[in-house]
């Protein structure tokens, strides 16, 4: 039965124009994402968020866990990292994309990593 479902899905995938499909990230993508998320000069996410095995984590933002169930739509997660002020005008989260703190590729690697949490 599961096999049947998969094949139906695959057929649908092949037949309809889907929103952007992201290739399964490689381990290297995920490692790079973690590095960017933890590095102080790049994402510096630990300054405000508890993540994974990160040390000296801040308490300003929520802990980053269960990311796939909290953000099933990758586009939304991307947009929130790009510029959270569009979702919450009083947020203190830096608009990483808008202010060019991280580029598109870097944010995507970070998302690859966040989706493993």
């Amino acid at each position: 039965m599961r096999k049947g479902l998969v094949s139906v899905c695959l057929t649908t995938l092949a037949l309809t124009a889907m929103p952007p499909v992201y290739a399964e990230p490689t381990q290297a993508d995920i490692d790079r994402g973690k590095e960017l998320a933890f590095s102080r000069k790049d994402g510096n996410c630990l300054a405000c968020h508890k993540i994974d095995d990160g040390k000296l984590t801040g308490t300003v933002g929520p802990a980053l866990a269960d990311m796939k169930s909290r953000y099933p739509d990758r586009e939304i997660l991307f947009k929130r990292i790009w510029d959270e002020t569009q979702f919450n005008p009083v947020t203190v989260m830096p608009p990483f994309g808008r202010n060019m703190i991280l580029n598109e590729e870097q944010i995507n690697r970070i998302i690859d990593y966040l989706y493993t949490l």
């Binding site: 300054a47 405000c48 801040g58 009083v90 203190v92």
Partner: peptide, 8 residues
Amino acid sequence: QNPGNWIR
């Protein structure tokens, strides 16, 4: 907005 919170 965030006194009492920690940044690192």
